[in-house]
């Protein structure tokens, strides 16, 4: 996935570094991320719990917040609930060791524009931050898999006539390729569409994921550990 980084830094030369606030309760992890993020990203603040995070983010108004899902004082979800309505220009990228479906789905529905796991490499993370700063969505293979699973074609027969509750064929194809480990660039190449179009599809899926009232979505997230 290294060329995702090339793409982000190569095609559009950054006018200024993306301003980022890091929210994580492990200091070692924060300093690790700080060291790994490239020159295109400037870390303007750090926080280790919900209250300090809300203070720092309100004061700094960064472009992107890298947000841990599990935090003392209410979790990333609490920060999203407080700040997403107040600061519409600040974008959130969830970063977590957990890949449990309920964690992933709940932060995305809380307003995060992407979800990556902490095993992500430095260049990939930098690329993901840039992408989120540009207003696009970041889907890891696993998140793409979750979405495909939650919007499973098997329930299509039922009357889900809302556009929000259904993925288009093209969106499904894009997600499948992402789940297979393709970068956005590779997805574009194999579907003969531009990277920009791939981003548009992914953003549309993110919107559906956040706004759909689809009953299966919440049920799926909670059931998955029982199946």
């Amino acid at each position: 996935m290294t060329d995702q980084a090339d793409q982000a830094s190569g095609t559009t030369p950054p006018a200024r570094p993306v301003r980022v606030v890091l929210v994580d309760d492990h200091r070692m992890f924060r300093s690790g991320v700080r060291a790994e993020l490239g020159a295109a990203v400037e870390v303007v603040g750090e926080a280790e719990d919900v209250d300090s995070a809300i203070r720092v983010i309100e004061a700094e108004q960064p472009d992107v917040v890298l947000l841990d899902v599990h935090l003392p004082g209410g979790g990333g979800r609490q920060i999203l609930a407080t700040l997403v309505p107040k600061l519409p220009d600040v974008r959130f990228l969830a970063l977590s060791v957990s890949d449990a479906p309920e964690d992933v789905i709940s932060v995305i529905r809380g307003g995060a524009r992407g979800y990556v796991t902490k095993s992500i490499t430095g260049p990939e993370l930098t690329a993901a931050v840039r992408r989120v700063a540009d207003g696009d969505a970041v889907f890891s293979p696993r998140l793409a898999g979750f979405v495909l699973d939650a919007f499973a074609a098997t329930t299509e027969v039922a009357a889900v006539d809302e556009d929000l509750d259904r993925l288009t064929q093209r969106e499904r194809e894009v997600l499948r390729l992402i789940a297979r480990g393709y970068t956005y660039k590779e997805v574009g190449k194999s579907l003969f569409i531009s990277v920009k179009t791939v981003e548009t599809h992914v953003s549309a899926v993110l919107r559906k994921l956040q706004l759909s009232n689809r009953y299966e979505l919440s049920r799926w997230a909670s059931d998955r550990r029982l199946v």
């Binding site: 495909l148 074609a153 098997t154 789940a179 297979r180 480990g181």
Partner: peptide
């Protein structure tokens, strides 16, 4: 380099990609 496995179970068929 990392390896990806993607398996999808549909009503009619099962598809697996190893990349």
């Amino acid at each position: 380099t990392p390896i990806s496995v993607y398996a999808e179970v549909e009503i009619g068929q099962v598809t697996v990609f190893v990349r």
